[in-house]
Write a protein that binds this DNA or RNA. Structure first.
Length: 577
DNA sequence: GCCGTTTTCGGCCCGACTGTTTTCAGTCG
């Protein structure tokens, strides 16, 4: 499947044309086509061979020829030419918050700025302020955007790392000489961003495993290759993957050692010493004469140290070791505990799929229910629903509910919170929904007091069920909004408002620390994917991981409940009484 | 660029906000 590759090509062309100053509707056409191809279920190569490219919505004469050339030749002349006109570093500038194609174009053409580093220097030297449309504040904003990007630079989003890793594991599993295999490191702990991918395998033939490991078709560079450890750099995304081969009797010890976190391990090793052992990546050895005691599984190591087994997601030295000793570890929510998803956008607003497609795919995931929460009226860009359309959407959902079995569809909304804290829909409109999610989509930089009060007053609305992506952060692009989370948590408890754990990989909002803190105060949560097409529904895994990192158990999360219980919560007396 | 015609051109979701200006361009969602 080269669908993703083709989509990326079209996205890049759109960016390049934007910087060149081509008309908006042309670049938009490229992006629409890219988006469609990205989520296409059918293999684009098959479609191309059968000469059906033009049947794809958004692909016409010109694009079909370009896609065909790219698939047949392995590259596209048009794209190669564009890349010569605009260096790759200039494209990077688009990823800085506050910079769009027009400004980037000026920076490139007037100041000959070719990359982020040069831009940073130019800002510090005050060279931008004299350009048309730029000023001192622009310089400061750009510097802020660059530093935000630097903070996460070199780190990959969780979903990219996870998918890349699973693909590598599938390749390795095909090899007979590998027995056990697992990911380790921050990826196994499911941190929101990942530095590199660590893999641990057991085998009696380490040398052969190393050979097989580096022969993977996506390897770009072999960084090192030894007897038991090798590192490679992957094509496309430049991710580093480290592989370690250990004996079976050391498998658990190696996993424990390489999963981390560093802080967790330091403390565990301290406990080992106190208990008369020495712990390293090969096993737990007695201090006295260095004999091997255990090491085959992580569980037996923890148990030998008088601790309960600690799940990887919470190994951060945030109290888990003490809790493991006192037998007070939370029973973390499991990846298959989730029974549905309430944050899904359909093609009634800005989603790519219709409700039936979403429902059928959700059924495949084993869900019992889903909720379609399209945008509200004022979010015109996202094609927000006006009150007339709400009725029609409800009719469609009830038709589907009577036709489809084993899955129930709820009609919800992601209602915009206006600047004054009022909701985008009035009471009569809100009443029509099965449930109401609320969210902020503008004025992120208001004062802490204003924005906190704005959210609190929205939460106090009697029709509101949950607050979506509470801090509005975008990892690597936007800092969380400055809010008084303590007050938000208190209001959530008072008003029975569930707080969302948004599973979209660049959001993961609330984050692990917020969640843990909220739980201590008594907050209840809901995990939503913010899906805009059926593939996004799979992001649920990352929301669950974040919930686990926040120490949540099943009972803390709305969408683990039975459908009957959900209905009583959505129809609580205060609303309909 | 695509699409759909009253079919070969004209329309294509647009409003809020910011920082620049002094009436508006660029960015964001």
């Amino acid at each position: 499947m080269k669908n993703k590759l083709v989509a990326d090509l079209l996205y890049q062309i759109a960016d390049l044309l934007d910087i060149k100053g081509d008309i908006f509707f042309k670049t938009r056409a490229y992006r629409i086509a890219a988006q469609t191809i990205e989520v296409l279920n059918e293999d684009i190569e098959v479609i191309s061979k059968e000469d059906r490219l033009k049947d794809i919505n958004g692909v016409g004469e010109a694009l079909s020829l370009k896609i065909k050339e790219f698939l047949d030749e392995g590259k596209l002349q048009y794209f190669e030419k564009l890349k010569k006109e605009i260096p790759a570093g200039v494209l990077d500038l688009l990823n800085i918050s506050g910079l769009g194609p027009k400004k980037v174009s000026i920076l490139f053409n007037k100041l000959n700025i070719l990359n982020v580093e040069q831009l940073k220097i130019a800002c510090i030297e005050g060279k931008l302020r004299n350009l048309d449309g730029f000023g001192e504040i622009t310089e400061r904003n750009i510097l802020r955007g660059i530093s935000l990007k630097e903070k996460t630079s070199g780190r990959i989003l969780l979903n990219i790392a996870y998918e890349t890793c699973m693909e590598y594991i599938r390749y390795l599993k095909k090899y007979d000489n590998i027995d056990k295999i697992s990911m380790a490191g921050s990826l196994r702990r499911m941190k929101e961003t990942i530095g590199d991918i660590d893999l641990i395998v057991t085998s009696d033939y380490p040398n052969d495993v190393m050979e097989y490991f580096i022969k993977y078709s996506k390897v770009k560079t072999i960084l090192q290759k030894g007897k038991t450890k090798s590192s490679v750099l992957l094509k496309d995304n430049n991710i580093q993957v480290d592989l370690r081969v250990v004996e079976d009797k050391s498998y658990g010890a190696a996993l424990q050692y390489f999963t981390g976190s560093k802080e967790h391990n330091v403390k565990i090793r301290g406990i080992s010493i106190k208990e008369g052992y020495k712990l390293n990546e090969y096993g737990l050895y007695t201090k006295q004469n260095g004999t091997y005691t255990v090491g085959k599984t992580e569980k037996e190591i923890y148990e030998k140290l008088k601790l309960r087994y600690i799940e990887p997601e919470i190994r951060e030295n945030r109290g888990e070791i003490e809790a493991a000793y006192l037998k007070k570890l939370p029973k973390l929510v499991k990846y298959d505990d989730i029974k549905g998803d309430f944050h899904i956008h359909s093609n009634w607003s800005d989603g790519n799929n219709n409700i039936e497609e979403l429902a059928l795919y959700s059924k495949k995931l084993g869900y019992k229910y889903i909720g379609i929460a399209d945008h509200s009226e004022s979010l015109k860009i996202a094609n927000g629903l006006n009150s007339r359309k709400i009725g029609k959407k409800i009719e469609e959902i009830s038709r589907l509910n009577s036709r489809l079995s084993d899955i129930e569809i709820f009609c919800g909304t992601e209602c915009d919170i206006k600047k004054n804290g009022k909701l985008d829909y009035n009471k009569d409109a809100l009443k029509k929904f099965d449930y109401v999610g609320i969210a902020i989509h503008s004025s992120f930089r208001s004062s802490k007091n204003d924005i906190t009060n704005r959210i609190i007053s929205a939460m106090q609305n009697e029709y509101v069920d949950y607050l979506a992506h509470p801090t509005c952060r975008i990892i690597g692009r936007r800092e969380p909004i400055d809010i008084d989370l303590e007050k938000i948590f208190e209001t959530a408890v008072e008003t029975n408002t569930y707080l969302e754990i948004n599973s979209f990989p660049d959001r993961l909002d609330l984050n692990d620390l917020n969640i843990k803190h909220g739980k201590d105060i008594g907050v209840k949560f809901i995990i939503g994917t913010d899906s805009h097409n059926i593939n996004h529904l799979n992001f649920m895994r990352y929301g669950i991981a974040t919930a686990r990192r926040g120490w949540l158990n099943k009972e803390d999360i709305l969408n683990t409940y039975s459908i009957e219980k959900i209905k009583t919560i959505f129809r609580r007396d205060k609303r309909y009484g």
